[in-house]
């Protein structure tokens, strides 16, 4: 990844932070966005002072088109190219569908799906012009299997999978690949509530017997960003310890 320019959305914690770390360790210059905690983001960016690649953080609410455009413009103006886009920013607002508020539905769709749409729209133009690029969307196994109390989240991730395949077909002739990584249960702050409530029950359903670490997902994202994955596009790569296999029964 040496010399490559990567942009990771929602990179200040969890899976996003692991992807930033992995890409920087492999030598890429990594820009990541954060939405709420500037301090946390700057601390993370600063911690890569001795890594192979440079790391920078930029504020961005992925629901706001102007902010998304500004981030992509800043990166491409500074670096004159953008090689890798990882759409990781996402939220959960779990709740049973019958009592789910319109706001919780809208906010999740607008962030998890709308954010992917906006960043792809802004970045794809540069990638088409340079005739090269890698887009990696972080999805979820819930997008395929569904999940109790997650109608909004499941809908957003299922849509990301379909979006990934469609965009892959459109951009393939420009040597831009588009893939998704679909994690199962990962040890992050976002899944903390579910893990503490149903952790043991979920573990019983995972053939590999443990939750994933953010680095497990980051490794797949880094592979998809690498030259080794040049012939892979339109795929949703599941990283779930086999959870989906039993979930279908």
């Amino acid at each position: 990844m040496k010399g490559k320019i990567a942009l990771v959305t929602g990179g200040s914690r969890g899976i996003g932070a692991a992807i930033v770390k992995r890409l920087a360790e492999e030598g890429a210059s990594v820009y990541f966005t954060y939405c709420s905690s500037r301090e946390e983001a700057e601390r993370l960016a600063g911690s890569f002072a001795h890594s192979a690649g440079r790391v920078f953080c930029l504020p961005c609410d992925v629901r706001r088109p102007g902010e998304v455009q500004k981030v992509v413009e800043e990166v491409t103006e500074r670096e004159k190219r953008l090689d890798v886009l990882v759409n990781n920013a996402g939220i959960v607002r779990d709740g049973l569908f019958l009592t789910m508020s319109d706001e919780d539905w809208q906010e999740v769709l607008d962030t998890n799906l709308g954010g992917v749409y906006r960043f792809c729209k802004a970045a794809a133009r540069q990638m088409v012009l340079q005739r090269a690029g890698r887009i990696i969307n972080i999805s979820s196994i819930v997008g395929e299997l569904g999940g109790l109390g997650q109608a909004n989240y499941a809908a957003s991730k299922g849509a990301v999978n379909a979006f990934t395949k469609s965009l892959a077909a459109e951009l393939a002739s420009r040597n831009v690949t588009v893939n998704a990584v679909s994690p199962g249960m990962v040890n992050t702050r976002m899944s903390e509530a579910v893990r503490s409530a149903y952790g043991d029950k979920i573990k019983e359903k995972i053939p590999l017997g443990t939750f994933a670490e953010p680095s497990d997902v980051a490794a797949v994202a880094a592979f998809l960003a690498s030259e080794d994955a040049r012939y892979i596009t339109g795929q949703v790569i599941t990283v779930d310890g086999g959870l989906g296999l039993l979930g279908r029964r």
Partner: peptide, 15 residues
Amino acid sequence: AESIDFLDIVFRLEK
């Protein structure tokens, strides 16, 4: 030229 080529041309002309 195919459909995406027209977009590509427009992007490059703009630039």
